[in-house]
Simulated scan of single mutants.
Amino acid sequence: MLTFPNAKINIGLYITEKRADGFHNLSSCFYPVGWSDALEILPAETLSFESTGIDIPGDASQNLCLKAYHLLKKDFPEMPPVRIHLHKVVPIGAGLGGGSADCAFTIKSLNSLFSLGLDDKAMQAYASQLGSDCAFFIENKPKYCFGKGDQFDEIAVSLKGKYIVLVNPNIHISTAEAYGSIKPKPANVDLQIALSQPLDTWKDAILNDFETSLTPKYPVLQEIKDTLYSLGAEYACMTGSGSTVFGIFENTPAIKQAFKEYMVWQGPLE
């Protein structure tokens, strides 16, 4: 079975408080975008995992795809071994949720491949055990997210027909680095209300808290954002805990050579 785990962006991200368990509560809108990995899972005689494309740091045996398999195997011991091949395209440490998407799509693929009978709620419960935003990619549609990023409400936000440009300056910002410099505080805007307003009102109303702490260390983030606005973006922002910055446009922009030294993905929004 071949699937294409896609990235997401955060439209607004407010870190509101540190929890007793060490995690943080947040407020954000998660929105799926088309930048995707490729994930193939096939029945096999022995369990194996391999990756191509962008190098994935760390021990391959600890990859989230394998963790997802082992988690389901505990409850479905009859599930046979599989061969997992992940072709990594979405940059790592980029605020795009690529690893979380790979994890969630592994769960969905195994559920379909072996007829496990899990509904979305059940798959979300498994996914949430492996990462705060993994569960989002089960339904994979725009959501208002809160808690530690694993609780969702429906939200009437549609950017269908708009065009997005994602720019990654080849900087890896770890979650630990990003959260280590953040100072939680109550959001100064009701994000759900702000998102209900026209897109051209978002620029000064909807922010990412990580920009305040990370931009001084990585000024290129502000430079990219400014360039996106100069090219005609209606809204631009850093996504997640960095380092990708996105711009939303009414029409296909002429970015030409503006970001030739960076990783860029662009395409229509659904």
Rank of each mutant, 00 (worst) to 15 (best):
V220L: 11
L118N: 01
I193S: 08
P219D: 07
A176I: 10
D55H: 15
M123G: 00
V245N: 06
Q197M: 15
Y229E: 04
T244N: 06
S27T: 13
C134I: 02
F114D: 01
Y69R: 12
N63K: 10
L13E: 01
Y163I: 00
A236P: 02
T52K: 14
I54D: 04
L86D: 01
K74T: 08
K217V: 14
G58F: 00
F4L: 05
F114Y: 09
K148C: 11
G58A: 12
A122R: 14
E50T: 15
G12V: 02
D55Y: 10
L130D: 01
A156H: 05
T46G: 00
I164A: 14
S112P: 01
M238A: 11
G34S: 10
L71H: 04
Q192F: 00
Y218T: 06
N25Y: 00
R19C: 09
T46K: 14
P253N: 12
I171R: 02
T46W: 01
P219W: 04
A60N: 02
N251Y: 10
Y31I: 15
H70M: 04
S132Y: 02
P77Q: 12
W202V: 11
D75S: 09
S230W: 04
P198H: 10
N10K: 11
L96K: 07
L231M: 08
I164G: 02
S158C: 08
A38D: 02
Q222E: 15
P57Q: 14
S115A: 13
L26A: 07
G53F: 06
H70K: 13
K141V: 06
T252H: 09
K18N: 11
L96E: 10
L191Y: 05
Y179W: 07
P81C: 14
P268I: 03
I224H: 11
A101V: 07
F105E: 00
K217I: 15
A20Q: 14
M79W: 03
L2K: 12
T16V: 15
E261L: 10
D119E: 00
S243V: 03
L66N: 08
I92V: 12
N170F: 08
N25F: 00
T239P: 13
G98F: 05
S27C: 00
F137M: 07
A38E: 12
P268D: 00
L116Q: 03
I11H: 06
F152Y: 14
V264M: 10
Q192E: 02
I41D: 07
G147R: 04
I9R: 07
G22L: 03
D37K: 08
G240R: 09
L207I: 15
P57D: 13
F136N: 01
F259D: 05
I155A: 01
Y235P: 04
V220C: 12
Y163P: 03
A156M: 11
G247P: 02
E17Q: 15
E40K: 14
G58T: 05
G34N: 13
L207P: 01
K141R: 15
I92L: 13
S109Q: 14
E177F: 03
I138G: 04
H172Y: 05
G53R: 11
P80Y: 06
A258L: 12
K217H: 11
L166T: 03
S100M: 10
A187I: 08
L2A: 00
I173K: 04
M263C: 11
P80C: 09
K162W: 00
G12K: 06
Q257V: 12
L166M: 15
Y179I: 07
